[in-house]
Design a binder for these strands. Structure first.
Lengths: 316, 316
DNA sequence: TTGTAGGCGTTATCAC
DNA sequence: GTGATAACGCCTACAA
């Protein structure tokens, strides 16, 4: 052992993996690190992976399921201990994971679920989070709501829509289908669909954005339309990104524990690798409504009608 | 070959690496994916790595050089083709890389340089970027400047400070040392040091934040102090993060090509792996000043003195 | 308890 | 050119 230290010997993970039919690597497949929600998940996963001697191979799919398949196939040749994946749109993960599991590689799905998935999952309670946000907005007195929802085929988008509808239904508030617009989970989608909503009559008094990037786009649209938030129109988001408190006004948003989603996923994965072969786990993490300044009672609109026009120096 | 297709055979990267003394993996060591500048670099690197058949192992150091050493040592056991590293504070990379290169593993340094580094580098032209931002601010008529610089021992922070000073020197504008405050590259540091600067007499008419996170913190400090930007005080940042246009007011900032830093680093690395053994490369990428609404001529301060107090409804 | 041979999947080399 | 074989570093199983 002294000699080991003296020489600085470290076992080759390569040879080790070859012999054991399994490496200490974990494949992490996500849509895009550049999208501000995902880095937290990655970081969470890396932290517990690292603490347990595992390393992360990072793969971006751009939500393209064919790119996802390529990664899934390539990763196999590294004999990873497991895979943590945030599935792409129309993901084929369910089929692929079958063969992975057969070879003893654990797979856990995070944030959204591919069709037919029956393995381990870690998600946020999207339905409840959206329900609470919507209920809050209703308590503020809003009756003319609108939602810019995410891509219709993503389960997290579906769940947020469901929560939104449940809150409305509970209070027997009707909503026309044209007040629910579908957008990609980004600023551009939020901007475009908000522009549409702003032209509707009656104009919604509040917009629920299915994530914060959409909300940021909505804010841009408000500016361009010369509307002041929250005096003229209210807005609420989902994700509670670090930047939600930096916008003008600071954005009220449903907080989602991205970091913890990463740590939990990695923990479940590592438990599996160590022999846990119980039934599929479905961890659902709590969301929390972060109230800031982007929602005001609609009654204020008339009360503040004059002040709201006081300042239209909008950028650009 | 038909049989290969039929069976879906894929060579084991593990066995391949063992035999060839080199895998198709690239170790990417960064401070923290969660810090909004780095994901772009990671993504750029992943894109060209992937296109060339390489995979990325992602490691976060939290700017802790001892954690960096651990990663550096562990990565060795994977026989990676190369390393792309954004060095931590007080990085020991120079010494470590020596032994890596001896075993034929290329190492390229990105964004900032460790002490004594003489290998390949990819950086932004921090000095020039800062010089241009400062010159712009001076052209707007500011004479009482302040800077919240980054950590004094990081080369990119040093270079930005140098550019700032050069512009001042050129116009023979004096500046007291107390108007240059050192902060960590994050929101909290920016907030605290801006608070300090706001109490100085005379109060600076503009603050140059060494990166956008610091600038966001400064914006928070402005709010809390009841100051309106840019009417009461101007602000300029560095990085041009995606969110710079979402703040209130939209932040003027020096744009830095993070994505391209990643692609270039990966490209240089791959060239090395493929046999390029020319002298060390030092790629310096151009910055660009993005002018938005956070800088106004200081003369407006008196002109708008009354309107500036019109609205102090500050969040929180 | 301590020591050793075999094989994981490649590729490079050497013999034919 | 074609085809067999050794070796990369490790772990396990089995022998002493």
């Amino acid at each position: 052992m002294d000699a080991v230290d003296a020489v600085g010997y470290q076992p080759s993970q390569l040879a080790r993996g070859l012999r054991l039919d399994k490496t200490n690597m974990i494949g992490m497949i996500i849509p895009d690190v550049t999208n501000p929600f995902f880095p937290a998940v990655v970081r969470g996963a890396e932290d517990v992976a690292f603490a347990n001697g595992y390393r992360l191979i990072l793969c971006n799919t751009d939500n393209d399921h064919s790119k996802e398949i390529v990664h899934l196939n390539e990763l196999r040749t590294f004999l990873p201990s497991g895979l943590i994946v945030i599935p792409s749109n129309f993901s084929d993960l369910t089929a692929q994971a079958e063969s992975y599991r057969k070879s003893g590689t654990a797979v856990v799905c995070v944030d959204r679920l591919p069709k037919g998935w029956d393995g381990d999952t870690v998600t946020a309670d999207n339905e409840k989070g959206a329900y609470e946000a919507t209920s809050y907005v209703l308590r503020q007195g809003h009756r003319q709501l609108a939602m810019v929802m995410g891509p219709r085929h993503l389960t997290n988008a579906q769940d947020r829509l469901a929560g939104f509808k449940r809150a409305l239904h509970e209070k027997k508030i009707p909503i026309g289908p044209e007040y629910i617009q579908e957008a990609s989970f980004d600023q551009h989608g939020g901007y475009a669909k908000t522009m549409l909503l702003l032209r509707m009559i009656p104009r919604p008094t509040v917009i629920f954005a299915a994530n914060d990037m959409i909300a940021f786009g909505a804010l841009l649209a408000f500016r361009e339309a010369g509307l002041h938030c929250p005096e003229d129109i209210s807005l609420i988001g989902f994700d509670n990104l670090q930047f939600a408190e930096m916008t003008s006004p600071p954005l009220s948003s449903v907080s989602q524990p991205g970091f913890q989603m990463g740590t939990s996923a990695a923990q479940i994965l590592i438990d599996r690798v160590r022999g846990d072969d119980g039934p599929a786990k479905h961890l659902v993490l709590e969301t929390a409504l972060k109230i800031r300044d982007s929602v005001a009672p609609p009654s204020l609109i008339s009360a503040q009608k004059s002040p709201s026009s006081r300042r239209n120096r909008l950028s650009k």
